[in-house]
């Protein structure tokens, strides 16, 4: 077919890293908490993304195998949520809100500044692997618009002028609490909520 359809029949040349046995074990640990294995999908994906930085094709296959689902079902979920990355991301992911309040308060200028400064667009990563950029539907902090999130840390009322400083700051993504506390721990103990 010379008018070429994308070939989806053969696996990509680089499937990326798979899940190690330890990570798989970590996912299996979620199984007793839910009625079905399918329900473990979201935590499993988080675990996987945490382990290898993004969710590779190989990882999706591994998860599908663990959850006894067709791999396409995993891909369905992965592509539905914007926070799951299907390709490697940088150390710091900058997220700019594109919802109404932030946009009114100048998030578009902020986005433009980031894009020109780093030379990347939505869901792209700088060549040096330091920064990735994505737009976000709502960061739930409209009173502090425009917001910018660096990894899991929220920065409020960010202006393009502050951007240089922010990018230079090595601790810009540092959280006020241990990261693991953000998620439900596997064994049922109540995690401490941040902020």
């Amino acid at each position: 077919m010379s008018w070429q359809a994308i070939d989806r029949k053969s696996a990509p040349a680089d499937e990326g890293p798979g899940l190690s046995d330890a990570v798989k074990e970590k996912i299996r640990a979620f199984f007793p908490r839910y009625e079905t294995k399918r329900a473990v999908m979201l935590p499993a994906l988080h675990v996987a993304q945490e382990a290898i930085g993004y969710i590779s094709v190989r990882a999706m296959k591994d998860i599908a195998e663990l959850l006894e689902l067709p791999p396409s079902a995993v891909m369905d979920v992965v592509t539905f949520y914007t926070h799951y990355w299907t390709h490697p991301r940088g150390e710091k992911v900058l997220m700019v809100c594109r919802s109404l309040s932030c946009q009114l308060m100048g998030a578009d200028k902020l986005q433009h500044a980031i894009e020109t400064k780093l030379g990347i667009k939505d869901h792209e990563t700088t060549p040096d692997g330091k920064f990735s950029f994505m737009t976000e539907e709502c960061l739930a902090a409209c009173d502090h618009a425009p917001c910018l999130m660096v990894n899991e840390r929220m920065h409020k009322r960010v202006t393009p002028e502050q951007l240089d400083k922010l990018l230079a700051d090595a601790d810009s993504d540092k959280l006020p609490m241990p990261r693991s506390d953000l998620y439900d721990a596997p064994h049922g103990e109540k995690p401490a909520r941040g902020h």
Binding site: R8, P12, M60, P71, S72
Partner: peptide, 8 residues
């Protein structure tokens, strides 16, 4: 609509 790459 899509299939998983390599799983036609």
């Amino acid at each position: 609509i899509d299939v998983f790459p390599g799983v036609p």
